[in-house]
Amino acid sequence: MVTATSSLPQAEIPAGRKKKTQLTREKIRAAWIFLTPMILVLLAVAAWPLIRTIWLGFTDARLSVPGSGQWIGFENYLFWLDYGDGEGEWIGLLADPTWWRAVWNTVYFTVIAVSIETLLGLLVALVLNAQFAGRGFVRAAILVPWAIPTIVSAKMWDWMLNDQFGILNDMFMTLGLISAPIAWTSSPDTAMAAVIMVDVWKTTPFMALLILAGMQMLPGDVYEAAKVDGIHPVKVFFKVTLPLIKPAIMVAVIFRMLDSLRIFDLIYVLTPNNAQTVTMSVYARQHLFDFDNFAYGSAASTLLFLIIAGITIVYIYAGRVNLSGDK
């Protein structure tokens, strides 16, 4: 395995003993005592809230109606609304075009952004893998976008993308790329592009560093041999480097993907209320708090959880990503 991420820690205690010694038993007891506080905290902040969210999705809870929260089954998900005159229609989350629009927006954003980030990350990693003076500086420089709070980077870019006073429009107009200022964050045609632009800027470093770590573990003798044989560097890259760092890329991609699928803060600040950039998280929070549909929002949260879990499992299975660490 290439990165430490991907290998499950192995216990160092030899397991081959026929009988558990007194010492081992004592150790196991101590281990559970050590683990208990952490498990309790995780149960409280992760398991219980998740269960409650799922439960709330099956109720009619509203924040403005104290004491509401009666079990209504799957009505939030799918419900045949009978108009009483023989007409009717399906309503609920599964029949809500706005929800599916949000799912599409999220998936679209994730695929485009993560693809660009992977390619750029690969490029940056290749550059950083070369020997040159000031490499430490460049590596630190690309960490800056990663360290900046998402809200701050959203505001910085919001200012740079401002339609009237933004430097980006000024730059593009000076270069002759555009003829009139573009309202990047408010125009439906460019809102998603603006979000992707900022996300790529912010998270490419993460990608690059993970890939770089993979590259630096590659055996040097392979390259020496390739050099001696006079194989073209580009060919070496595609035939040798890429296959070897593929596991590292796969792991980096899955972490970025999970992150993009739940994106919220960047959109909340950069393109609020813009129908083109409403993602699953934004949709869920809107219903939870802005629209007084606490139960419906909970249902959306649950569905989002299932969708993300589903995509992750498919990805791990199809990409044969080795997260469990078995060699």
Binding site: W48, P49, S281, L304
Partner: peptide
Amino acid sequence: VRFQGRGILLFTILSVSMFPQIAVLAG
């Protein structure tokens, strides 16, 4: 320490670190 359920516990911890936060927001 090697004990029963260690692998499952580690896997659970890894999954929780990837939780979408919105999924626990209501709860």
